[in-house]
Design a protein around this nucleic acid. Structure first.
Lengths: 350, 350
DNA sequence: TGTTGGCACTCGGATGTTTTGAGTGCTAAT
DNA sequence: ATTAGCACTCAAAACATCCGAGTGCCAACA
């Protein structure tokens, strides 16, 4: 017994109905809402089959059916047709993303914000994976005696900085000297090849005592390594509380607690990101329910896609919502956000 | 009829009990837990009086009493005695705050984090009020053709920066020239005296065409103004979901929605901050329930205190919790965090 | 006059019972 | 293979009951 066409149509209808009503759907209700040329009895038989095959399940004996993870999977893989997105909405998304932008991270913030508002779910974006990028500039900027700003510029156009302490008596001129020497040595070097040793060995023959020099270089090193860190933008966490599935404070807290651990989310998404995403214009990845290996997300789906910074560097952007989600709509939105984001990044990085 | 000593003791007992049990307290229970030399009947009379006076109220006819806002107010103003804080806890707080610190904002983040963990409530801190401070440095740093980093250093030791777009053909040397000119003109100037005009008029007689120069200066100006912005650090929002009062998703959402509007919270706290806080070592401000003019915080209390950066500049730090809160404990913690924060800031700004 | 034991009363919350109705599976007829 | 029909299930809603911590008030007492 496998999924014949009729079963597919029925499964599709069940998912569609459940998504909109959030209530288990029964044979009668299904007949009412769609004009099947079927009796409810036949439908029941088919539904019993679908259940045996694992595509739908019953919360309890005398209730309707809800899609299982496998059912959703079948749905997103081969049943749904992706929405088109109206021109008005396109305009809206474009203007939201392009507003008040100075650098790539601004775009990411805007994009997550937009996604969250548009979908009504939690959205997230990660900064580009910088490991694959290299250092283009490093500047030490004297702020006042004992304090300097390390400015790190990476190939992806990402700029990070860090305020560090330096020996009190170092002069403006000396700091400049170090700055130039380090930059000369390191610029162009891939980030993961930069070690404390390469940094330390970059400056030689200066008037500055070694021990102090090393202190400065160490700070420069940590600043570089810190720039390497993945940042996560999560938007719209509060919206979780509006989702019926999370009407229970306990559940909501479970989910929110997990989400508030940026590192954990980042790690997970990053891992996913290494999996293959086909290279089309409309490519995305979906993780449904138990497929998500994060505590508290058992009733959620995770839809991510990738954006690009230049040729090789990419990052992830996507949303987290309930399994019971209007996939077709959300996916169309994500795809358009991704497209806009890519375009805008190109504009910035010219 | 006013609050005689016995009534005060009773009110105190009611608040204490209610805070720990989260259940309306009745005459019998009160007698059981405290060894009053009173019968429950007398107690009932006294409680009826306290109710008439508005210090306590009944959720419904046949229930015990809970403190009213006025009751809490009386409690915090004259009934409670502030906890002392153990040495172990002091050490803990000190180490949490002083760990991994580079600049003042790091301290603030650590401090809010500490406060939230220690109290179990939401904690918040605001960056120093910068209006009273002045500009000490302004640097334009060429990143690549068309892009520059504006670094703004303020008297409070606060460093902010912003990546801006500049005309493509401007050279490193030209950017430096502008940078020096602007800094020379503006450094030492109070932030609120800096206007687009003062910035624009700071550079004269250069080789750069006016229209392009103006573009750069405009970006510098917005960067300065942006540095002027108050930042709010809010920590531990999730903890709200663990508070019995907010076991209801609707309420929790109301509160969280308000809190997620940083600007609104900042505005409110800032307004409060202008009110007088006495200058003792242990000074704090409490707003209880309806006294808080923010939607969704009707069942909350707001405890804030101020920290200092140098002589004149100060910022706020505090917590938001349920009205039903162990005030004495929380206040002692806030005070110690404040003290530690002040000490550490002095260390940094030396 | 303030205190106290006593008592009738209240009412939210817990517990138990009944009803309802949408849903199911199965069977026999088409 | 499809379908009408029927007996059965069970969560949720509606209704009923009970319990007890709590109250206010009164009359008696120090």
């Amino acid at each position: 017994m496998s999924l014949d066409d009729r079963k597919k149509v029925i499964l599709q209808a069940i998912v569609d109905d459940y998504v909109t009503t959030c209530e288990p759907v029964g044979s009668k209700a299904l007949i009412d809402r769609h004009n099947f040329t079927l009796s409810s009895a036949t439908l029941r038989n088919e539904m019993a089959d679908l259940e045996k095959l694992g595509y739908i399940e019953k919360p309890h004996t005398s209730a309707g059916r809800i899609p299982s993870d496998k059912g959703y999977r079948e749905y997103v893989d081969s049943l749904m047709h992706i929405d088109t997105i109206s021109n008005a909405e396109k305009k809206d998304i474009e203007s939201r993303i392009a507003t008040g932008v100075g650098e790539v991270t601004d775009l990411l913030k805007n994009a997550t914000n937009t996604l969250s508002t548009k979908t009504g779910y939690v959205s997230l974006a990660m900064t580009p994976v910088l490991k694959k990028s290299y250092l283009t500039q490093l500047k030490l900027l004297m702020i006042e005696p004992g304090k300097a700003l390390v400015v790190v510029v990476l190939s992806a156009g990402v700029v990070k900085d860090k305020l560090v302490r330096i020996p009190n008596f170092l002069t403006d001129v000396q700091v400049n000297e170090i700055s130039r020497a380090v930059e000369k040595q390191l610029s162009g070097m891939p980030l993961d090849e930069i070690t404390l040793i390469t940094v330390a060995s970059s400056v030689k023959n200066t008037s500055i005592p070694d021990s102090f020099l090393n202190q400065v270089l160490y700070e420069a090193y940590t600043a570089i390594k810190q720039a390497d860190k993945l940042d996560v933008y999560l938007e719209g966490k509060n919206r979780i509380l509006s989702i019926p599935e999370f009407n229970d404070v306990g559940r909501a807290k479970g989910l929110l607690d997990t989400l508030s651990d940026d590192g954990m989310v980042a790690g997970y998404v990053n891992e996913l990101g290494t999996e293959e995403i086909s290279e089309g214009d409309d490519s995305y990845m979906i993780r449904i329910g138990q497929e998500i290996a994060l505590e508290g997300l058992e009733d959620c789906s995770f839809i991510t896609t990738t954006y690009k910074v230049g040729d090789k560097i990419s990052g992830n952007i996507g949303i987290i919502g309930p399994k019971r989600m209007e996939y077709s709509k959300v996916i169309s939105q994500i795809n358009f956000v991704r497209k806009t984001l890519n375009d805008e990044i190109k504009k910035i990085n010219g």
